[in-house]
Design a protein around this nucleic acid. Structure first.
Lengths: 340, 340
DNA sequence: TTGTACGCGTTATCAG
DNA sequence: CTGATAACGCGTACAA
């Protein structure tokens, strides 16, 4: 089962390697007849080009690298699916790396991908990332780069995001319109843009509706914004801080489910006593009781859009066509359910 | 920012390319002095070997391919995390592909990986896969192959699994011990080994405890064994078929959550009227009310074990050390919670 | 229409 | 200790 090479085909057909190579690629300067002979034999022998050699020659690998903070989040699973699917349709394979919210690891992984010779890189930044030399290095190397979801505005490249601030503003406004007045916010880490924007949207919505902003109503989810954060923060808010609220707006659905669990466990009625509003539209939020109001965040589409931009940049770069960086903002919408 | 090559270093140092190459790889036949000079300059110029060239020369890419049916399942997310993490620690990168439970796609993806020249392949089969030429092709090409989770016994290669039959047997036995007698089973598709084994475990547990097997108590989850399946099957069982049961054992936690949702919606008390037992120990099963009894299925560890075996086979193959295929069976345990 | 010859960047063999 | 030289398999400008 030794792989067949151009050379072998050439020998069997008494042709030069060049002729065979050209014939297979339908160069106009090869006779129809030889093309047919070559192709027939190639098919018969099951010829496939050695991609290592092709890579070396063409200086491209038909491979893109993807770095995400975590795969286990349902949102990222969908993004990945979008990326992989579309990339494959265009003949590109995807190398997946996970930074685990670790800045140092993220830097190392960028280097790994660069050394591997990927044709482009897609990345969603870790929460800890606050310097960008590694990304600028990618740009210096002229390797197309697209940031998605968790981005840094300072970096000069294409981006795919949602308008976190607006989405968050709309969610909180919706709560206010329904009469909720003391709205807590369980925010994410202090560093990520995401988390900042959602917080700012929350704040703005309050101010625009003449509700004073009260920093005591803001709790930080340090534990990676997961279920525990929601539960623990609710517990602290109610049992320790004895703060009374009539609604909670969370950075994430999983956190919201933590809140819900606490409230359910303590027979606090949702939404009568306290309403909940999540973010991301994880499928579980439609299943829990009461079902959760949330913001729909299009994961698959984000992945799809990000690769599409990346592939276009890769193509343009190869043809030496200059291109501008774009920032695509995907639409989100409110999903109103029982919890608000 | 042009990449530096061995040649350039050689020229600047008035050495041969060979000497430089050897120096960098610490060959014993290069003087300490030259080694030092070469390494110093290499570091200064930021030399990194061109991996395309290395691949071509060494006929290996330090890359492994992974095919899974779906990323969105929490279980597979964990497996992937295990694979990626361990592979990276050993200097291997991972190309991820998703078959979407589609046999044709799976075949195509195997070819893609083979053509890419990955050093090994890890695969969890799609539910539709019932022929194995594509896997045998991998073996013919002498590319190390490890099956995990959804495997085919017929294929001659290493495997990492859990003992589905035993796990299932234990779960059902546990239900019986607690006094449940009419236990329904919501099984998976008819084809996958997984699904068959869990069904057989269920059946065996009944027989061993003198409970007659009743095929009317078995429902198939055709819809990819997800939430909808659980809900719809419960509805059908109760409303249409009017079958009375005192417990339901499901192929998966998500299905179990569907069952739970229906029962909660219809004020049927869990576990007093109907008990539920799931499979996989998804983190949501500890959060829903009542929390779900389930079988813990070690995803991360499965991924980790599978790559470790694969990497060992890759290494042995390179050194021409013969090796035997192994089948590792990972331990599962019952997690008893409120629903049973 | 076909073939020659060279280069891609590295590694391996062998001679000095 | 060091360095030619030959692969690895393919692509392409140029010559024939």
């Amino acid at each position: 089962m030794k792989p067949v090479t151009l050379k072998e085909i050439a020998e069997k057909l008494n042709l030069s390697i060049t002729a065979v190579s050209k014939a297979l690629k339908d160069y106009p300067d090869i006779s129809k007849e030889t093309k047919a002979r070559v192709k027939a034999l190639a098919k018969e022998l099951n010829y496939v080009p050695n991609s290592f050699a092709v890579n070396l020659r063409t200086k491209s690998s038909k491979t893109i690298g993807v770095i995400i903070p975590a795969t286990v989040h349902h949102f990222f699973s969908n993004v990945i699916k979008g990326i992989i699917t579309i990339a494959e349709e265009h003949g590109f394979l995807v190398i997946l790396l996970q930074s685990n919210e670790n800045f140092e690891l993220e830097k190392k992984q960028i280097d790994l991908l660069l050394n591997k010779g990927v044709d482009g890189i897609l990345i969603s930044l870790s929460n800890k990332t606050n310097r960008y030399e590694h990304l600028n290095k990618v740009i210096d190397y002229k390797v197309p780069l697209v940031l998605f979801d968790k981005i840094a505005k300072q970096v000069n490249c294409s981006k795919v995001i949602i308008d976190d601030r607006k989405a968050s503003y709309n969610a909180v406004t919706c709560l206010i319109k329904k009469g909720y007045k003391r709205i807590a916010h369980f925010r994410g880490d202090l560093n990520p843009q995401n988390s900042i924007d959602r917080f700012l949207g929350y704040k703005q919505a309050l101010l625009d509706n003449n509700i004073p902003f009260d920093k005591n109503l803001v709790y930080v989810c340090n534990n990676n914004a997961d279920y525990e954060d929601g539960y623990a923060n609710t517990k602290k808010m109610i049992e320790v801080d004895k703060i009374e609220v009539d609604a909670v707006f969370t950075i994430t659905d999983v956190v919201a489910i933590g809140v819900l669990k606490y409230l359910n466990d303590h027979k606090i009625k949702v939404p009568e006593e306290i309403a909940i509003f999540g973010f991301s539209n994880w499928f579980m939020s439609s299943i829990v009781s009461p079902s959760l109001s949330t913001v729909n965040q299009p994961g698959y589409e984000m992945g799809k859009t990000a690769v599409e931009i990346l592939l276009k940049e890769i193509k343009n770069k190869k043809k030496n066509i200059p291109f501008d960086y774009t920032t695509i903002v995907l639409e989100t919408e409110l999903v109103i359910r029982e919890s608000s």
